[in-house]
Design a protein around this nucleic acid. Structure first.
Lengths: 138, 138
DNA sequence: GTGATTGCAAAGGTTTTGCAGTAAC
DNA sequence: GTTACTGCAAAACCTTTGCAATCAC
């Protein structure tokens, strides 16, 4: 895999999807920000630096597409603003109840085989902690 | 604790908060539905049966208050619609990616002491699984 | 050329807010 | 009598959608 390539873009060629400049800009923006679990708005701002004419609707459509393709993942939110992150299963989060920032901490796989026996299909699992981050504690 | 009482309402007397008929209706509605991790809208509909004049804004304000008081808990969502549940720490969820319903499965405490050393204050933690529930798999 | 994709603007859904009136203590 | 609380309607916010124009293949 070439240096700098984190996502498997071959999936575009395999499908009938097009890797347009807008989608590239959204992907690039996402990769730049992926450490901080960016919101759609943050990705939009960053994407406009690569493709100044891109619209917010295209950003949402692209992100949905990437989620659907399994390239990235949507993180559930407490305040109604979705965040996105790289596809890592399992992964563990700390969500700050005040600022909403998401931090990642060391992996600690937790899988429960029982619920699959009950007919649930588990795609991914993660452990989430809620509380206050160092910046918000003072 | 009297039968049927699940939440600690003494917290109302301790504070200068008032336990109005509207708030009682919201609490009652929440308790009726707590098994299914209700949305604010569902709680609103149920609360109107107990207090027909209650407004949706009051429902939101009450739920926020209960969360703040630690009586109930808000569940992060993927689709922008919050859900509420009883305060249980830790608790484990299965979130259906299709219908958004939340199922609870057996407790399996996962705590990471390391992140507290780094300055994070952990209020609660839970393990979340994403996938498809039995009803949505066909 | 054809069909997927885009940008815009409008609509959608959920939640919050301002404010005058009301009710709990 | 105070002060917290309420209902209403409007606003705020995030996200999705319809559609004509455009672009990638």
């Amino acid at each position: 895999m070439p240096a700098g390539t984190v996502l498997d873009l071959g999936k575009f060629q395999e499908s009938e999807r097009r890797l347009t400049p807008q989608r590239q800009a959204v992907l690039k923006a996402f990769l730049e920000l992926s450490q901080e679990h960016p919101t759609a708005e943050a990705i939009y701002q960053a994407a406009r630096r690569h493709c100044p004419t891109v619209g917010i609707a295209t950003v949402y459509r692209s992100l949905d597409l990437f989620v659907q393709m399994g390239l990235i993942q949507k993180v559930p939110s407490l305040n109604g603003t979705a965040r996105y992150e790289t596809q890592k299963v399992p992964h563990n989060h700390f969500v700050c109840l005040k600022c909403g920032r998401i931090y990642e901490f060391d992996k600690r796989p937790v899988v429960d085989k029982n619920i699959e026996k009950e007919g649930f299909e588990v795609i991914s699992s993660s452990t989430v902690c809620f509380g206050y981050c160092p910046a918000c504690r003072q």
